[in-house]
Simulated scan of single mutants.
Amino acid sequence: MQNGQHAHDVKMAARKVNVFYGEKQALKEIDLDIEANAVTALIGPSGCGKSTFLRSLNRMNDTVRGCRVEGDIKLDTLDIYDTKVDVVQLRARVGMVFQKPNPFPKSIYENVAYGPRIHGLAENKDELDLIVEKSLKQAGLWKEVGDRLAEAGTGLSGGQQQRLCIARALAVSPEVILMDEPCSALDPIATAHIEELIDELRQNYTIVIVTHSMQQAARVSQRTAFFHLGILVESGDTKTIFTNPSDERTQGYITGRFG
């Protein structure tokens, strides 16, 4: 396909990535391409390294004492571990949504306005109002909270809080959104909302999601990477990984023989 944006533009690329916590090696020689405008699901048993890998994509591991990352991770052409990289700017380009919704103890408005303020993305209050509205709309929350922006973000339901955290990530116009089990603290209806939202967001963003739920991975992702004991066992098209994996460890995990 030669039409400009072909199906497999690579947004982020990891090569020979090793991650150590002190002496313990958590990830071994990870090679993975993250495709643009697709959802990539990272699956595998607990403690297999999938969250560690996710956190290496926006240098969240920098905040963990004794953590060391080796290898190469690129965002487009930028080597994100280059010493010259401004981590604050990097995390604006590669946003993160955590397992438990963690809105700031501020108003709904201030939760979303926070990032754009820090990054100087709005010239004035009108522009900031527009960014807040657009981000809440993109996160599917505007209809519910548009008329009560001054209320505390912490007063929302769990599912709404998670969408507020997504709006907060979107407000700084990221290119990539990392989600670390974003639905594990939510009920099935709130989970369905977030899954629909992820599907809409991939039109404009590149998304990487760690999930414990294989059903969720199958529903929301186009690409799947299976991690086991710190190794990337295989990755590829989600349908293929779920119906015809090439490695018996993947087969075993997917059919529930271990995990």
Rank of each mutant, 00 (worst) to 15 (best):
Q2D: 04
K16H: 15
K16V: 05
V17F: 04
N18R: 00
Q25P: 01
K28E: 13
L32W: 14
L32F: 15
A36M: 13
N37M: 05
G47V: 01
T52R: 02
T52K: 07
F53A: 02
N58G: 10
V64W: 00
C67W: 01
C67T: 14
R68L: 03
V69I: 10
L78F: 07
D79F: 07
D79S: 14
Y81I: 10
D82H: 09
T83P: 09
Q89V: 11
V94S: 01
V97N: 10
Q99W: 06
K100W: 08
P103K: 04
S107K: 10
Y109H: 13
Y109W: 12
V112E: 05
G115A: 12
G115R: 03
A122E: 09
L130Y: 13
V132S: 13
E133G: 04
S135A: 15
K137F: 08
G140P: 01
K143D: 15
E144C: 05
A150K: 15
A150P: 02
G153E: 11
G159V: 15
L164M: 12
R168H: 02
L170Y: 04
P174K: 11
E175D: 15
E175N: 10
V176T: 02
P182N: 05
D187K: 04
L201F: 13
Q203M: 13
N204E: 13
V208R: 01
H212M: 02
Q215L: 01
S221I: 07
Q222F: 08
G230P: 04
G236Y: 07
T240H: 09
N244M: 11
D247T: 10
F258I: 11
